[in-house]
Simulated assay, not measured.
Amino acid sequence: MTESTNRVALVTGGSGGIGRAVCEHLTRDRIAIGVHYAGNKAKAEEVVAAITAAGGHAIAVGGDVADEHEMAAAFDAVEQEFGGVDVVVNTAGIMVLSPIATLNLDDLDRMHRTNIRGTFVVSQQAARRLRRGGAIINFSTSLTRLQFPAYGAYAASKAAVEGMTLILARELRGKDITVNAVAPGPTATPLFLEGKDQAAIDNLAHAAPLERLGTPEDIADAVAFLAGPARWINGQVLYANGGLA
């Protein structure tokens, strides 16, 4: 167990591509980590083992991000282990691609539950629990600007995340807690690469002026900035996309 004076983060989706990179980056910044998982405990425990082997402190915590009782229990577990929570990073999300005209509405509901309700539930817990000097970092997407076909429902869910993020920042006036969102562009994660052929991947890689896809570590750099030194950045959406939009 670490001392309660150390900074502590809960990272939802912490066993995923971007989530894991965020956990490992924050560990290098001497932040203890609650590595959240929804269904794959073994994968989260792999991240915990890697962090521990590198000299950091971490535990795995499970739960459905859209279930307020399960997420309250996840926060409880992190607080019990490390003494409090200072940073919450909402990387958990799902993406289903389809033209709006043909989207299965069950898929819309699934994205709504995880991306919108899940972010809302976790942000609500964070607003109630974070210590002074804390940071809430939600995840949007650069697709809210890019307007790529087939991303309509996903972009809509992330536009909702932006809306709640910017309002929560104002609602937490006086608490010394920042609330921002990171909006990645095309990033080489399994979630992004799934279902795309090489030509599509190459086209997206060359669209940005830096002429490559982002990496999970690129996005983790932006998160770590908002989680630590960026105390004067509040109520903003940070576009991490290599200049694509």
Rank of each mutant, 00 (worst) to 15 (best):
L238Y: 09
R128W: 03
L108K: 03
Q236H: 14
L130K: 10
G17D: 12
A155E: 00
A49Q: 14
A32P: 13
A44L: 04
R30I: 00
T91L: 04
T5W: 11
V121T: 13
V47K: 06
H36F: 06
T27Q: 14
G228T: 15
R110E: 09
S157K: 06
L97A: 10
P229R: 15
E3V: 12
D106S: 14
E81M: 13
P186F: 02
E79I: 14
A9D: 05
N104V: 11
V35Y: 10
L105F: 12
W232G: 01
K175N: 04
V96G: 01
L238H: 08
A21L: 08
R117M: 11
T114D: 01
A220E: 08
D29E: 15
T102W: 04
T114Q: 08
G118D: 09
V8H: 14
L226Q: 08
L168A: 12
T91N: 14
G118A: 06
N90H: 13
A77G: 10
I219K: 01
Y239N: 13
G118S: 10
A44V: 08
A49F: 03
T91S: 14
A44H: 03
L191F: 01
T165D: 03
G19S: 07
N234T: 12
A101Q: 13
A77H: 10
E24I: 03
L193D: 06
E211Q: 15
H69W: 00
Q198Y: 01
